[in-house]
Design a binder for these strands. Sequence first.
DNA 1: TCGCTGACAGATTTCAATATCTGTCAGACA
DNA 2: TGTCTGACAGATATTGAAATCTGTCAGCGA
Lengths: 197, 197
Amino acid sequence: MNEAVVLTPERILEATEDVLRRYGLTKATVVDVARALDVSHGSVYRHFPSKASLRDAVAKRWLDRANEPLCKLAAGDGPAPERLEQWLRTAFTIKQKKVCDDPEMFATYLALAQGAREVVEAYKDKQVDLIAKILSDGVAQGEFEIDNVKATARAVFDATVRYHHPAHAEEWAKPECPSRIDALLALLLRGVRVCKH
Amino acid sequence: MNEAVVLTPERILEATEDVLRRYGLTKATVVDVARALDVSHGSVYRHFPSKASLRDAVAKRWLDRANEPLCKLAAGDGPAPERLEQWLRTAFTIKQKKVCDDPEMFATYLALAQGAREVVEAYKDKQVDLIAKILSDGVAQGEFEIDNVKATARAVFDATVRYHHPAHAEEWAKPECPSRIDALLALLLRGVRVCKH
DNA sequence: TCGCTGACAGATTTCAATATCTGTCAGACA
DNA sequence: TGTCTGACAGATATTGAAATCTGTCAGCGA
């Protein structure tokens, strides 16, 4: 046991994730989190004003972690068409992996996200920005022909909702899924590419 | 009171819709339906083997009714690009209208559909067929250039999921929605059109 | 004969009493 | 002085007994 370990928001978040993993979202209480940290539950409220804010913070951490590889991909500098396809496929894979690996925990985080609308909105906006980055790279490279990059990035995000929005998660395991993704990506790429005759 | 009115599946469905409208999905019971028809609940089971099958039948009726205008649009013979756009916009409008007009009843039907997976699958397949019809018309007209019509129709359906799948219904009322739809449709149309230089 | 009834068993839902949790705060402790 | 505790009030969740519902079927009446 470490002596004089200060109670930080970071440690609380860590403990909260543990508790969520162990008890699930509906059973996990602030008292459980406090117990895991060996403090009174009043102390937790010193760092987070409410249980809801604690949950929001956990959701944010989770989303930020999931987003990391996508940020790197968007920041890359290869040919934009390949990079766009790669980015979208990676986005799908990250989500699908989470569902397959630990469906229970995915359900927990999904429910968590339901209550953290603002956090989720910010996350989505960031995703759209990443797509926009790749699209504008593509325009600069002469590969893409796009009127309004921002709006088109949003459209690409919307068009792929079925494969990254958790509401559709149960469809992701179906056998026809990969070929449907292929068809969708082909359609979208054709929609942004310059015409080559 | 009509004398000698026979108890038909049709009359039972009618009464069931009434009861659902009045009590909501969770409260509506087979006994309520029977009471509305002034028969014993045993009689209802003479026409529908279970409550689930009764609900499925109601869901099917509802979906079929909602689909009617779309069938007509797909069967039309104008220029395919306009028809495709019109078809998709109509699909969105039908759904959006239902939510706005009677959110409670929409929620009821949504929950109903959750339990009627087969019925919903058939309905979706029909939608895809209608899109495919328009796409192949477009190819015949020399307006569209499409490798695999069936797969592309599926892709168009998937790409517009955000605006016809009820899981996203709460986003439909947002003010930025129309312009996002415009951007999405423009992207998709560019994805199927022949290149015009 | 054929469709309907109404009583029944087992499954499900309701409801109210009880237990637990959230969020606050006065005071302990360092 | 600043952090933590632990008791508390009101809100929320759990539980189990009672009520209701689903699905069946023997028998009634047309």
